[in-house]
């Protein structure tokens, strides 16, 4: 197996260049993606269900809760977002539980591009990243120049991470190279003048991709195009992150590293609301990818209400009595 390099590092481009033959033309890319082994749907679901039955208690649970909190991309993506709401969310991200300062801070605050500057200012010095959705989120139905301008604006405003959506219409109609080129173009738009770059998360909206085979194909497609993270969903459609889909993406990341040596992160988003769910995902990461991925650098939860449930469970563990929604903030 080749030595591992991070997807956002300088060497990753060289590793991907070695795979250039499969992305040389639409036909080559199609042959490669359709040449990936088909997904055993029943086996995948059974594996995901089995991993969900692990019993994680006491000190292991306390560790898992703190780990999960530190992996959250605390998200507000509403039309009604105000600068005040974004600032309040940032304050919560820094001190999730004001009554207990040992609570870890979250990984990032995820907002729309026009709120990046507000979030950046509110988070100054905290070490928490600002993630911005871009490329005409959540539909992704806009012309490429508009998407690129959207991305550049967010990066210029100070975004540390960009969450882009792929063009599902192009993917589902089989124009794989168009999707590939678009991801590459957005990745270039993430570059800053000083030579560094915002990390790129690529959202697949798996709820709209219909089949597990498509999820495997799009995972490889995005990783070949240079995604730093692959993310399940926008949280704006009926079906969001599910354990089988996330497991499939974790397996794609594992296989991609085995093939190229490039390490890519995973972010399930949408529909993860309880501590129990979050711990199931952590078990899945540990069993599929191993401990290396059990950090906020390589695994994230896109969530908003999950944090409150984690905090209530944390309070239960530290005080021995059940907590309630009166003891966490209303966001």
């Amino acid at each position: 197996m080749p030595t591992t390099v991070p997807a956002y590092g300088k060497e990753a481009a060289g590793r991907l260049a070695a795979m250039a033959d499969v992305t040389a033309s639409d036909g080559a890319l199609r042959r490669f993606l359709h040449g990936l082994p088909g997904v055993d749907a029943v086996g995948l679901q059974a594996r995901a269900a089995t991993l969900g039955t692990r019993s994680i208690k006491t000190s292991a649970k306390a560790y898992a809760i703190d780990l999960a909190i530190s992996m959250i991309d605390l998200t507000t993506l509403e039309g009604a977002d105000t600068p005040g709401k974004v600032r309040a969310l940032c304050a919560k991200g820094v001190h999730p539980d004001p009554t207990d300062r040992t609570t870890p801070k979250v990984a990032a605050i995820c907002v729309y591009p026009d709120m990046v500057a507000t979030a950046k200012e509110a988070l100054a010095g905290s070490g928490i990243h600002v993630a911005s959705v871009a490329t005409a989120f959540p539909a992704g139905r806009a012309a490429l120049p508009v998407k690129l301008a959207d991305t550049r604006d967010a990066v210029a405003a100070g975004a540390d991470e960009i969450d882009m959506v792929i063009d599902r219409g192009a993917f589902l109609s089989g124009r794989y190279l168009a999707v590939f080129e678009e991801i590459k173009a957005v990745k270039e738009a993430c570059a800053r003048p000083d030579g560094s770059a915002a990390h790129l998360k690529v959202i697949f909206e798996t709820g709209e991709l219909e089949t597990y085979d498509n999820v495997r194909r799009v995972s490889w497609l995005a990783m070949l195009a240079g995604a730093d993270f692959i993310k399940t969903s926008t949280g704006k459609v009926a079906v969001n992150a599910t354990p089988p889909v996330t497991l499939l993406m974790l397996e794609a990341v594992r296989d991609f590293r085995a093939a190229t040596g490039v390490q890519v992160g995973v972010k399930p988003a949408g529909g993860i609301r309880t501590t129990k769910d979050a711990i199931k995902y952590l078990v899945m990461v540990n069993e599929t990818l191993g401990e290396e991925w059990l950090t906020a650098d390589w695994f994230r939860f896109g969530a908003s209400s999950l944090l409150n449930d984690l905090l209530m469970q944390r309070q239960k563990l530290s005080t021995g009595r059940y907590s309630g929604p009166d003891y966490v903030t209303v966001d």
């Binding site: 309070q315 021995g320 009595r321 059940y322 907590s323 309630g324 929604p325 009166d326 003891y327």
Partner: peptide
């Protein structure tokens, strides 16, 4: 647990 529960 009901008597100690913070949401009762």
């Amino acid at each position: 647990p009901l008597a100690a529960h913070q949401d009762v």
